[in-house]
């Protein structure tokens, strides 16, 4: 996390610097707003990131379809991998958190969130694509709204609106004097902070990761140019390239971790809404 903050800060400072003549130009947030490629002026505008998003979703659908098409009792290696992934998302996240009955009910939602987020996050490290479309706030926002609607729906469906609000705001075991204060705080944390943090956690992790990778590889290019011109500073390009490769591996891990966190938090919020009193 510290590295991420460092990268974000550095890139902001570097981007604010005047490039001057031949100086180093760092990455900037503008990379998330590229030029329009197709259908300019219509609601179906396509730019590089939306195109990558469509490719990622198509790849995901294709992999899931091909992987579950011919199921055998003795699984091949591909089927075993697919079974592991589906079991991890369905049993490991949904049923472990929500229990057998409710877990089966909400497993499709949670698995969709997990696999979609994972696929979109992984495009951040695939060479040639190199940008995670979850870094644009719209995608995590939609997913967070879906999670929000899901846990409010789960609670209201089970208890009815009044008892659901009472369960989540009017906590038992709190002294009666400060109960209204706690209720206000609980309202803020449950109905406002939850969706906002779900959105920002995913977005900011992906933006910071992209900045980190872009900074490393841009610096490699810059120092390599110096090396060609015969400057000793060019030797630094080897270091930045190695750092770039190391951070690519880290980004693969972060992509999976963020998908897991988003899915498990959705499951936990649904579980809290379904609990009798917490």
């Amino acid at each position: 996390m510290i590295l991420f903050l460092y990268a974000l800060t550095t890139s902001l400072l570097v981007a604010a610097d005047d490039p001057g003549n031949g100086g180093f130009v760092g990455p900037s947030v503008d990379e998330y707003f590229p030029q329009v490629l197709l259908f300019a002026g219509t609601p179906f505008e396509l730019n590089r990131i939306t195109l990558i998003r469509l490719i990622a979703v198509a790849a995901l659908v294709l992999i899931l379809w091909l992987g579950t098409r011919k199921l055998k009792l003795v699984p091949s290696r591909g089927q075993a991998t697919m079974e592991f992934a589906l079991d991890f998302a369905g049993r490991g996240i949904a049923i472990e958190t929500l229990g057998e009955k409710d877990g089966k009910r909400f497993a499709p939602l949670i698995m969709t969130i997990f696999f979609l987020t994972l696929a979109l996050n992984l495009t951040g490290t695939i060479p040639g694509l190199q940008i995670a479309s979850t870094g644009l706030i719209g995608q995590p926002l939609i997913l967070a709204v879906i999670a929000y609607v899901a846990f409010v729906y789960a609670g209201v469906r089970k208890f009815g609106f009044g008892r659901f609000m009472k369960n989540s705001l009017w906590l038992p075991g709190v002294p009666a004097v400060i109960k209204p204060l706690i209720a206000v705080l609980e309202f803020l944390s449950t109905f406002i902070v939850r969706p906002v943090t779900l959105t920002l956690r995913l977005t900011m992790n992906m933006v910071a990761g992209h900045m980190l990778l872009a900074l490393c590889f841009l610096a490699t290019g810059f120092f390599f140019n110096l090396l060609i011109q015969g400057s000793a500073w060019g030797a630094l390009s080897a270091g930045t390239l190695l750092l770039g490769i190391a951070f690519t591996v880290l980004e693969l891990f972060v992509a999976a971790l963020q998908a897991y966190i988003f899915a498990i938090l959705t499951a936990i919020y649904i579980q809290l809404a379904l609990a009798e009193s917490h």
Partner: peptide, 20 residues
């Protein structure tokens, strides 16, 4: 583990407020 994720989500919220 469930409790841990809830705690982390609440603690990290301060970080995201600072971004906001």
């Amino acid at each position: 583990q469930t409790l841990m994720w809830i705690g982390i989500a609440i603690t990290e919220a301060l970080c995201f407020i600072a971004i906001g």
